[in-house]
Deep mutational scan, measured.
Amino acid sequence: MPSETPQAEVGPTGCPHRSGPHSAKGSLEKGSPEDKEAKEPLWIRPDAPSRCTWQLGRPASESPHHHTAPAKSPKILPDILKKIGDTPMVRINKIGKKFGLKCELLAKCEFFNAGGSVKDRISLRMIEDAERDGTLKPGDTIIEPTSGNTGIGLALAAAVRGYRCIIVMPEKMSSEKVDVLRALGAEIVRTPTNARFDSPESHVGVAWRLKNEIPNSHILDQYRNASNPLAHYDTTADEILQQCDGKLDMLVASVGTGGTITGIARKLKEKCPGCRIIGVDPEGSILAEPEELNQTEQTTYEVEGIGYDFIPTVLDRTVVDKWFKSNDEEAFTFARMLIAQEGLLCGGSAGSTVAVAVKAAQELQEGQRCVVILPDSVRNYMTKFLSDRWMLQKGFLKEEDLTEKKPWWWHLRVQELGLSAPLTVLPTITCGHTIEILREKGFDQAPVVDEAGVILGMVTLGNMLSSLLAGKVQPSDQVGKVIYKQFKQIRLTDTLGRLSHILEMDHFALVV
Rank of each mutant, 00 (worst) to 15 (best):
S202G: 03
C244S: 01
K177F: 00
E239L: 03
I219V: 08
P74E: 11
I261T: 13
K211E: 12
V189F: 02
S3V: 12
E29V: 13
I143F: 03
L248G: 01
K94D: 02
Q243P: 05
V10W: 09
Q242E: 15
V178L: 05
L28M: 13
P74H: 07
K98I: 12
R164A: 06
G185D: 10
T87C: 02
P59R: 03
D245F: 07
H232R: 04
R51I: 07
S32C: 02
T257A: 08
A130H: 01
K172S: 04
I219D: 01
V180F: 02
H218R: 14
P215I: 05
A183N: 04
P145D: 04
K25G: 08
G185H: 05
C165Y: 01
L251W: 01
A38Q: 04
N225Y: 00
R58M: 09
D133M: 09
W54F: 08
P21M: 10
I143T: 04
P16C: 03
G151D: 03
T13G: 10
R196S: 09
V160E: 09
G256A: 01
R125F: 13
H67F: 11
S199L: 07
P74M: 14
P49Q: 10
A114Q: 13
K36I: 12
L106G: 08
A226D: 10
K137G: 07
E144Q: 07
M250V: 03
A8Y: 14
N194T: 11
T235D: 10
P59W: 07
I240L: 02
H232E: 03
D133L: 11
E4L: 09
S19N: 05
V168M: 06
G162I: 05
A48P: 10
A60C: 09
A8K: 10
D79K: 04
I143W: 03
N228S: 04
K30R: 14
E201I: 03
K271I: 12
V255E: 08
C244F: 04
L230F: 15
D249C: 01
K25A: 03
Q222Y: 00
L220I: 01
P33D: 10
A231I: 10
N225K: 07
I166Q: 04
S147L: 00
E270D: 13
M250L: 15
S202M: 03
A158M: 02
P145M: 02
A207W: 00
H218C: 14
